[in-house]
């Protein structure tokens, strides 16, 4: 499994990675007109998937059920609920690439349990939390360009200024960004912004749901954002590429070391983890765009 990653690392030259990405994007843009026609696929696929105990594939009770036609009793409380539900607006995303996404979901699931989790567990057993936090701060600091540019593009001038200040202050007083001195001394906190959110702030919708191997849940819009973020991330300009990918993997392992158990909990609490994660992704990104 480890060899797989190093192989991936060796192949991972930026251009090689990106050109198929663009091809896929173009394909998706072209095919997005079929979204509504395809979306019925999702539901039928779910019922026929072999997803263990979650959806038992016993004879489905036919839909026409006495309970389906409720007695027409006007229920005040219920009327109230539907009213408020409308205000809460259910966020949804088209998933015409369900077969691909489901495959990638399983791939990432295995990637986590077989590789990332053991790596992160071993790593955090050896490396004390304070050092892991410093590493995390360091990576946050060098990815400032993503947040700075995203803020600027959203005309969040004050936030952009904050990011610039944080970078200068943390790089000096925070010793190369190892400490988040700007947060400790001035309570100026990192504001997580990226180009996907920037596009969202322009009113651009997700398009469709897309899960990428290694990278996890995304959407058409956020994938375009991620490609932009890629070029704004200084790590990707390191030569040779092997080193850049190695650093990226290390960053991921370090981040994962803080989150061991989160994914397990999510899976445990979900009735259908795939749908739960898809919904959580959309809700979470919506909140980030609004912030």
């Amino acid at each position: 499994m480890l060899r797989n990653v190093t192989e991936y690392a060796k192949e991972g030259k930026p251009l090689k990675l990106i050109s198929p990405l663009f091809l896929v994007l173009i394909f998706l843009l072209l095919s997005s007109t079929q979204v509504s026609a395809d979306s019925s696929l999702t539901i039928s696929d779910i019922s026929s998937n072999k997803n263990e105990e979650i959806i038992p594939s016993q004879e489905n009770e036919p839909l026409p059920d006495p309970s389906k036609e409720p007695e027409e009793k006007p229920d005040d409380d219920l009327g109230d609920i539907t009213e408020e539900e409308g205000e809460e607006e259910v966020v949804q995303i088209a998933d015409p690439l369900y077969p691909w996404n489901k495959t990638m979901y399983h791939f990432n699931d295995k990637l986590y349990f077989w590789l990332m989790k053991p790596l992160a567990q071993g790593y955090s057993a050896v490396v004390p939390e304070d050092i892991r936090l410093s590493v995390s701060n360091f990576f946050d600091n060098i990815t400032t360009p993503i947040r700075f540019v995203s803020n600027l593009f959203q005309l969040k001038i004050k936030d952009a200024g904050n990011e610039l200040f944080r970078f200068l202050y943390n790089s000096t007083a925070g010793v190369c960004g190892l400490a988040d001195a700007a947060k400790m001394d001035f309570d100026i906190r990192k504001k997580d912004e990226d180009l996907g959110q920037t596009l969202g702030s322009y009113g651009i919708g997700h398009g469709i749901y897309l899960i990428w191997p290694f990278l996890g849940p995304s959407s058409l819009r956020d994938t375009v954002g991620r490609v932009g973020d890629y070029f704004l991330n200084p790590v990707h300009y390191i030569n040779p590429t092997e080193t850049a990918v190695g650093i990226t993997v290390y960053d991921r392992v370090n981040e994962t070391s803080f989150r061991i158990g989160d994914y397990e909990d999510l899976k445990k609490s979900a009735i259908d983890p795939y749908v739960s994660i898809r919904d959580a992704y959309v809700q979470h990104r919506k909140k980030k765009v609004e912030d």
Partner: peptide, 13 residues
Amino acid sequence: SQFAQILANKSPE
């Protein structure tokens, strides 16, 4: 979202 998915092709039971 999870229950709606299930209820789309299953009865409440």
